[in-house]
Amino acid sequence: MDYLVTATPTGGLLELPAEDRDALMSRERQVATELIRAGVITWMWRLPDSVTTVAIWSAANAEDLDAHLRSLPVFPHNTLEITPLTFHPAFPAPLGTAASS
């Protein structure tokens, strides 16, 4: 199942000393890269003029998604909004699949 995950850093992350925040973000990039390679994070954007990240995550169920999200070092420093996604009836197959049929 796919999920739309909106993550906005809390003041706690922004208030960390620069050295601590840089180390945390370095670990975050490493874990996120692994999740991207594993196909868990499939798309990611940053909202303009914002620190909010919007991403599409793929997980077997909500419990797996929760485990993946908790693996991120910045997890405790984010406010998350999670929305399960399903295909739209006008596009019952992924667009890339439909175009190649």
Rank of each mutant, 00 (worst) to 15 (best):
H68E: 06
P17F: 01
V54D: 14
W43K: 14
V51Y: 15
S50N: 10
H88V: 09
A55S: 13
I36P: 03
D22E: 15
E19C: 10
I41E: 01
L24E: 07
I41C: 05
A23M: 01
T83M: 15
P94W: 01
I41D: 01
T6W: 06
S71V: 04
I36G: 06
E34R: 14
D2R: 15
P73D: 02
P76V: 12
F91S: 06
L85Q: 09
A32C: 10
S58N: 14
V31Y: 05
P17A: 08
A93W: 07
D49K: 15
T79W: 12
R21N: 08
P84G: 03
R21D: 00
T8R: 11
A55Q: 12
P94C: 02
L69N: 00
E81G: 04
A38W: 06
E19L: 08
P17D: 04
D2E: 14
A98Y: 05
L24V: 02
A62D: 15
P89K: 09
D66N: 13
A99S: 08
I56A: 05
A55Y: 00
A59S: 00
G12S: 13
T52S: 04
E34I: 07
T8Q: 03
E34K: 12
Q30F: 08
L69D: 00
V51S: 15
V40H: 00
R27S: 05
P9C: 02
V74D: 13
T97Q: 09
A18I: 13
W57L: 10
L85V: 00
V5H: 07
F75P: 04
L14P: 02
V40D: 01
S26M: 13
M44S: 10
A62I: 03
L24A: 05
L85D: 10
L69I: 07
S101N: 11
P92F: 00
